[in-house]
């Protein structure tokens, strides 16, 4: 799982390896992440997600070995 910007700062890391369980979705992996980093819960309402560099929904299945990213509200430009 890749973390960026405000989320990386809150977690104190930019990369987290998480165990994978068959049938995992973005939401189930996020729940596992929040157990380790409860301080990220406040960010959840505005978070977007990406699976292998494509925007994904919370309910989307995550393939084994996928790179999941948490995308806080973007502010490029």
């Amino acid at each position: 799982m890749l973390l960026f910007a405000s989320v990386a700062d809150r977690a104190g890391t930019r990369r987290v390896e998480l165990p994978y369980v068959a049938g995992d979705t973005v939401a189930s992996i996020r729940a596992r992440l929040l157990e380790r980093f409860p301080q990220l819960a406040a960010a959840v309402p505005t978070l977007m997600y990406a699976i292998n560099e494509e925007y994904a929904r919370e309910s989307d299945p995550v393939p084994a070995g996928a790179t999941l990213a948490m995308i806080p509200p973007v502010s490029g430009g």
Binding site: F4, A5, S6, A50, Y55, A69, I71, P72, V74, S75, G76, G77
Partner: peptide, 9 residues
């Protein structure tokens, strides 16, 4: 770009 590109300031 301001809506979608994963860049943060």
């Amino acid at each position: 770009i301001k809506k979608k590109v994963p860049v943060w300031k």
